[in-house]
């Protein structure tokens, strides 16, 4: 088990009056692609910020790669193990040149000087931006900026990469670019934790953790969770279009055999039914 948490509760208030997390249990395996799904304010970001000790555990237990997240002496190790990319790359850029931006984290971790250029190149190659080393971050598109922010994280060679609503501000093309890179990194053996409220981005995950009001509502395969109308309603999320269509067609007396999750499955189901009419 790569990440194992029990009974985690957290409050941002001094007096602990309102809880951002309530008795959360969590299990994430090495190499898994986990989507954490929930509406604004459901506790998604609060939970993942515990994994790399951006937030200190207040209640409960949490082990990341067997390390107790409460141990302050291990904070830097955890931060390096667990890289995190945020919603707005503009807010985290510190340099006016892409390669310096990526070198920033490496220098902070005292990476030997002669190693840094290779690490920058490798990180840029991973996000398919090799030709951009000398560019200024502010001249890049939203999707490109997000990939540079990711390269900065990848240069530190983390085992776990957390994407905190990284696609929220991107146009459909930019979103597609970033999602493809997430899957490529997963394919290369990294553990991926993607926070999102785009249900479509959770469809291809190994596991979905559905959160609402600081609690885990459900945890399981994407099919079981995303096609459960009641559960999605409780989480204040809108199911993927094929799921909605399946249920709305049923109400009109049109019965597809199975509830589809993707557009391709939907088309297949409709085709099957149509060929019988």
């Amino acid at each position: 088990m790569l990440i194992a948490g029990n009974n985690i509760s957290f409050s941002y208030d001094f007096d602990g009056s309102s809880l951002a997390l309530q008795n959360v249990d969590i299990r994430i395996e090495q190499g898994e692609f986990v989507a954490i799904l929930g509406c604004n304010g459901s506790g998604k970001s609060t939970l993942v910020k515990h994994f790399n000790a951006l937030l200190q555990l207040q209640q409960g237990e949490l082990r990341v790669a067997q390390i107790d997240a409460r141990n302050e002496k291990d904070i830097w190790y955890l931060r390096r193990l667990c890289g995190m990319v945020f919603q707005n790359p503009d807010q985290q850029f510190v340099s006016s040149v892409v390669e310096e931006e990526i070198a920033f984290g490496l220098e902070n971790y005292e990476t030997p000087r002669d190693e840094i250029p290779n690490r920058i190149q490798a990180a840029l190659a991973l996000v398919e931006m090799s030709g951009y080393a000398k560019r200024a971050p502010n001249t890049l598109s939203g999707g490109e900026k997000q990939r540079i922010a990711l390269a900065g994280v990848l240069a530190l060679e983390p085992e776990i990469i957390i994407f905190d609503e990284v696609t929220a501000m991107l146009d459909p093309n930019g979103r597609q670019e970033v999602v493809e890179i997430m899957h490529k990194l997963h394919g290369a053996g990294k553990t991926i934790i993607a926070i999102t409220h785009y249900v479509e981005e959770a469809v291809a995950a190994d596991k979905v953790i559905l959160m609402h009001k600081g609690r885990v509502l459900a945890c399981g395969g994407p099919r079981a969770i995303l096609s459960d109308l009641d559960l999605m309603r409780e989480a204040e999320l809108i199911p993927p279009l094929p799921v909605r269509l399946y249920h709305d067609l049923r109400q009109a007396g049109v019965h597809l055999r199975h509830c589809p999750l993707t557009d391709e499955e939907l088309v297949e189901e409709i085709w099957q039914l149509r060929s019988k009419i």
Binding site: C39, N40, Q87, A168, M169, H197, E236, L237, I238
Partner: peptide, 13 residues
């Protein structure tokens, strides 16, 4: 300018 980017589905609606 992009008023709903970053809002959840119910927030968008």
């Amino acid at each position: 300018d992009e008023p709903i980017a970053g809002l959840d589905p119910y927030g968008r609606e």
